[in-house]
Design a protein around this nucleic acid. Structure first.
Length: 418
DNA sequence: TCTGGGGTCCTAGGACCC
DNA sequence: TCTGGGGTCCTAGGACCC
């Protein structure tokens, strides 16, 4: 019998910052999103003050100040590196580890000598001892139950010691009626409201519901969730990450932008990042979409034009896509518009291997040039070599006013002990 | 004045075909 | 006044996740 475990780091970004600033361990700490916009990670102490996940920073500025909350801009270099180390430790305890996101991984146990609760507790101790990362572990016969168990462990750290096991019917009968249906993986706000109209309020109510009927009313996903709650595993383990089916890169600007040239530089930057990811997973793309965002009002962009361009054949050459930007941007650009954000989406991806060139419409591919570009930039840092259309002053650069050092990934940021 | 970014999957609807 | 049925493919948009 297979058992899934979900290991999830508590307040991951905050915990990464605290590793190098242990004096902050009992203090309220928050981490801001890109552009120092929203709060995307909070310590328990910050939650206790009443700060909420996802809130814009400017709205709680006075609260942060009043309680002396320590604020960080997000430092993705650091978090990415810590995430790798997190997985290395997990791999020492289980030979099947699948990273699900930067701060959580699924483990799959099929044969194990010890009780899984003991293994889970040891994983937890090891992560704390080696990386100062506090985690909770959820166990279950399906991924959804493992996720749910993890949620329960987080909400009841003292009672459960950070490990909850939902493999037995008895445990499910006890816990599922205590979980609001909206806390189940895959049930968001809309679905919770729809389910409430059918008098389904808790995870147990959903567990008991008729899956075929709910499939017709909602979708196959809801049906799958119900089966998973009953312990029938429907979601694959996916140890090897599947290649992405679309690749997106976008950023809000530090200040609004009106000039064509600045937009072109920003879009060229995003295309460069997208193409790097594309080549890293050995894919080619045939479709590129440019997005511009202008004027915000009450939670949404008023004006959000986009242009999709289909190439004659798939490519992974940054230069080819930069040319496409020019075409797209000329169609999109409006004089005097205040642009807030721009992005690039690559779609219609296919594996590079086995790619067949168009006999009648050849596009000059330069695989050696692109490979060289990637090698140089990996070694000497991002954009050590770049296309001229990226420009040189990054007038659109985002704000990041309280970034911590790149302790683990830049020589000059190494901690010095004197 | 100030509101993140990167993904996946599903569904509905239109175009098109026989 | 009356106007089929079935299928595929593509796109846009929404819901959800972290």
């Amino acid at each position: 019998m297979k058992t899934f475990a979900l290991c999830d780091v508590n307040s991951f970004y905050v915990s990464c910052e605290r590793l190098f600033r242990p004096e902050l361990n009992q203090r309220p700490v928050v981490v801001l999103s890109n552009n120092d916009g929203c709060i995307i990670a909070l310590s328990d102490q910050a939650k206790a003050i009443g700060i909420k996940m996802g809130e814009p920073e400017f709205k709680v500025k006075s609260l942060l100040k009043k309680h002396g909350v320590v604020t960080f801009s997000s430092n993705y270099g650091l978090y990415g590196d810590m995430s790798q180390r997190f997985n290395w430790i997990l791999e020492q305890h289980c030979d099947q580890v699948a990273s699900y996101s930067v701060d959580e991984s699924f483990l799959c146990f099929e044969r194990h000598a010890e009780p899984l609760r003991d293994i889970s507790l040891r994983i937890k101790d090891d992560l704390w001892r080696c990386l100062s990362l506090p985690v909770c572990v959820g166990l279950g016969p399906s991924k959804t139950l493992a996720k749910t168990a993890n949620h329960i462990a987080k909400k009841n750290k003292k009672l459960t010691d950070g490990v909850v096991d939902l493999r037995s019917e008895k445990a499910r009968r006890y816990w599922l009626p205590r979980i609001p249906v909206g806390k189940i993986w895959g049930i968001g706000r809309q679905l919770s409201q729809g389910l409430a109209r059918l008098n389904i309020h808790t995870a147990w109510d959903l567990h008991e519901a008729d899956h075929a009927v709910l499939q017709r009313i909602f979708s196959v996903n809801v049906e799958r969730t119900i089966l998973e709650l009953r312990g029938v595993s429907c979601l694959a383990f996916d140890e090897v990450p599947q290649p992405k089916k679309s690749i997106l890169n976008s950023r809000s600007f530090g200040h609004s932008i009106t000039e064509y040239q600045d937009l072109k530089e920003a879009l060229s930057y995003h295309v460069s990042r997208c193409c790097e990811k594309l080549r890293a997973q050995q894919s080619m793309a045939r479709s590129i979409t440019l997005y511009l965002y202008a004027k915000r009002q009450q939670d949404r962009y008023l004006y959000q034009p986009s242009q999709t361009i289909m190439l004659a054949e798939p490519s992974d050459d940054t230069g080819v896509f930069i040319q496409a930007i020019e075409t797209g941007l000329q169609r999109l650009y409006k004089n005097n518009e205040q642009y807030k954000k721009a992005g690039i989406l690559l779609n219609a991806l296919s594996p590079r291997k086995g790619h067949q060139a168009d006999l009648f419409n050849p596009i000059k591919a330069r695989p050696e040039l692109m490979a060289g570009l990637d090698r140089i930039n990996q070694r000497y840092g991002r954009d050590a070599v770049k296309f001229a259309s990226l420009g040189f002053d990054k007038r659109w650069a985002m704000r990041a006013n309280s970034m911590s050092p790149h302790y683990t990934s830049r020589w000059e940021d190494l901690i010095k002990i004197s």
